[in-house]
Design a protein around this nucleic acid. Sequence first.
DNA 1: CTGTTAGCGCTTTCAC
DNA 2: GTGAAAGCGCTAACAG
Lengths: 349, 349
Amino acid sequence: MSSSVQPENGRGGRLTIRQVADLAGVSTATVSRVINGRTEVSDRARAAVLRVVREHGYSTNRTARGLSAGHTGLVGVTTPVVHHSYFAVILDGAGEALYEQDMRMVLCPTHHEHDREVSLLERLMQGTTDGALLILPEESPDELAALHDHGYRFVIADPLKQLDERVPTVSAAHSSGASEAVEHLLSLGHRRIAAITGPRGWIATEERLRGYRGALAAAGVMPDPGLVVESDFHAEGGVEAALLLLDLPDPPTAIFAFNDMLAIGVMQAARRRGVRIPEDLSVLGFDDTFEASIVTPPLTTVRQPLAELGRMAVNLLVRQLQNQRIEALHVQLETKLVVRESTAPTSRR
Amino acid sequence: MSSSVQPENGRGGRLTIRQVADLAGVSTATVSRVINGRTEVSDRARAAVLRVVREHGYSTNRTARGLSAGHTGLVGVTTPVVHHSYFAVILDGAGEALYEQDMRMVLCPTHHEHDREVSLLERLMQGTTDGALLILPEESPDELAALHDHGYRFVIADPLKQLDERVPTVSAAHSSGASEAVEHLLSLGHRRIAAITGPRGWIATEERLRGYRGALAAAGVMPDPGLVVESDFHAEGGVEAALLLLDLPDPPTAIFAFNDMLAIGVMQAARRRGVRIPEDLSVLGFDDTFEASIVTPPLTTVRQPLAELGRMAVNLLVRQLQNQRIEALHVQLETKLVVRESTAPTSRR
DNA sequence: CTGTTAGCGCTTTCAC
DNA sequence: GTGAAAGCGCTAACAG
């Protein structure tokens, strides 16, 4: 009788399908049918259920549905950090694609801690998610392969190292992007073009290095090993490396930093040494993160389609979850040179 | 007999508690007890279970556990966007706090779309999550109050508008932060201090405005209404507003932008007008997002403890979920002035 | 069309 | 100590 509008049934005060069924005078099966838009229901029954649903505000419990259906509608996403525009943009792209699939993202920042990454992944596999998207995962190729063999579905966005062929990946065209960058510099008359790389062994580093060398070779420029310095993709690393290069007896006239953070470090170092950009030194970055557009001068850089990277990774994952054959296990997205004001013709002083 | 190491039981190829029980020759209840570290189990049984678990790699299905336990260990987090360092830092803080609680975050970017925010929230409530953290939600105070009355647990980080007293919020001390900013400018000799605000009606805007006016009044400076221009917290808005101010017959010697993005816009506008910062114009921001530190010159700004904002919000939520009385329903975090190089004494030309 | 029933995988009384 | 059994809320196969 006193079925209140704010029904209490233990937890959360939410109605169960059973209660709706009783209230509507039908079985739970019928309620389920109505809720799920099945057609094989009489108008009378449907109306009764709908009325109860409306008046009492019922909505199906997703956890229960998930248990019954065998999937959760949740996708795990691991990322080194979220507070970094590089990753944030990938996340945004992935989030958008997931939303379109009516799926949700369980976000797991790893903070570059291997242990955490492993435990996070473990948890994600425990029936919490249907699959995962791993952004720049630091797990070893072996660990990742094991995960794959274990039957867990996931795809890697921006792989760090060379992985087992069978695990799907999405990455940018590092090598051609780097070539294009160097060609731009060459076309401006630069010949002493330095490179500040990321950690050796990372795909991004090695591939960009390949592009850098290739472009130089193609232009018949003798590569100077002293002009290539390894760094870590952070601004501080960039200033250190740049200082080193600027203090060379015969310093470069252009520096190609392997990501925007490094490039920003270079700009800071240049300022410290009184070197003007782009008059005395051209600086070129990679990624085209937001920061590239707001520094002074705005940074010329190679744009990675980061949001697209996230979207594409989700696409691959979704198809995999639907057990569709994935035609392309390894997608490579095109990069594009964005010329701004940090590069200029050499001033053959 | 032929119990393979890679057991197949239908979905996902994962062992169920039932299978473990059979393999170990005990009941599911016992397995459950062992898994959950109960003590009332004989060493013999425990050993048997553990052995099976080890050899076959069993781990409990979280979804099922959740259904049974009545909670999911998941917390929904809505945010306008993730690709914005302001929000990204809050997310990082929240993520960290959640991780410490062994909870996971279901991230839901709303893209400022009201409909999406509503539907997202609806879904979150459908038993998918135990509660939620709403970052700068754009839902109306009424909608939020209704949600609260509906029994859903959530807390607001950085409320946009004034809300129902009963919904927990965490925000920064906008007013005192703004005062401090203006006092800094005053101490440098500035008297014509302009303000570029966010949208009127937003708490952040109104409170900072209050601080701005208060500081001016306290110093006996006559406020000039023409020096306050409303904007939108975006860089483009900042350049527009700044252009307006710089073109005034009697332009300000300092501009207090109500967030860093606006401030960056101001710097761009100044550059366009040939106005030097800080020699000709002091610029001060709010937030202290990453960008503030990399622009030229580095921006003096009011630091909001954004990561802390996220952490604190999670704390409030967790306590609420544990049905603990929350002592402070509305937490306000201190801000701090970070002096860098975009502000300098007036050059009484 | 509709209700009954058997799970989904796990936890938890409640007896033995 | 340990197991049987009753759910958690929902879906789906199977009879009517």
